[in-house]
């Protein structure tokens, strides 16, 4: 017996107090925020920063970004750890409409290059979009990654976050381009 999947609808412009209340300063707890690691989490602390750009190159101020990743050993949902691996951040509060995740660099999973699954929601997206973030300091692993090998070579760069060493630690810079020149690769996951 199979059932028809319930159709998706847009997250709309008013998701903040439902899905990300702490970040938007509403009086309710959040199940997830941009702080993905804890002081005890093992692995290399990193910050992921970027914007979501529309077809005219303008930053989108009402996108919600979720990330899902393995821990530093490449394990998802480790039972014996406080690392959930899930983060959620809306682009409204930041003055530059950026998303900012403080996490750790994931380990490799099943022979793939280290990567993070990224889910994109916003007003104007009737169905959420899936993409992946890879790391610019993993060129050898990226070259052998089975998913990147299915991506046209001139579009692979849209999935690679650029590593920068800053006073606040290691920052990976990565913009999501919804359409047009430099459009980010989205996957049929």
């Amino acid at each position: 017996m199979s059932y028809i999947q319930t159709p998706s609808q847009t997250v709309g412009p008013y998701f903040a107090y439902g899905l990300s209340p702490v970040q938007y300063l509403y009086d309710h707890s959040s199940v997830a925020t941009g702080m993905v690691r804890t002081p005890q989490t093992q692995g290399q602390p990193i910050t992921i920063v970027g914007r979501v750009l529309d077809g005219e190159g303008k930053p989108i101020p009402d996108a919600l970004i979720e990330i899902w990743q393995a821990d530093a050993q490449g394990n998802y949902n480790p039972q014996d750890s406080d690392f959930k691996g899930f983060g959620r951040f809306g682009t409204g509060p930041d003055v530059h409409n950026r998303f900012i995740f403080q996490t750790i660099k994931p380990g490799a999973v099943q022979g793939q290059a280290p990567h993070i699954t990224v889910v994109v929601f916003m007003r104007g997206l009737l169905v959420h979009a899936y993409t992946r973030l890879y790391f610019s300091d993993e060129n050898t692993a990226n070259a052998q990654d089975p998913v990147l090998q299915t991506v046209p070579s001139d579009r692979i760069a849209t999935l690679i976050a650029q590593r920068q060493e800053t006073g606040e630690g290691i920052v990976y810079q990565w913009d999501i381009v919804m359409q047009g020149e430099g459009e980010t690769v989205f996957f049929d996951v």
């Binding site: 919804m178 459009e183 690769v185 989205f186």
Partner: peptide
Amino acid sequence: STVLRAPAKPLIPI
């Protein structure tokens, strides 16, 4: 709102 926000290129199967 879909006009400038919808991905224009086909999704890549994973």
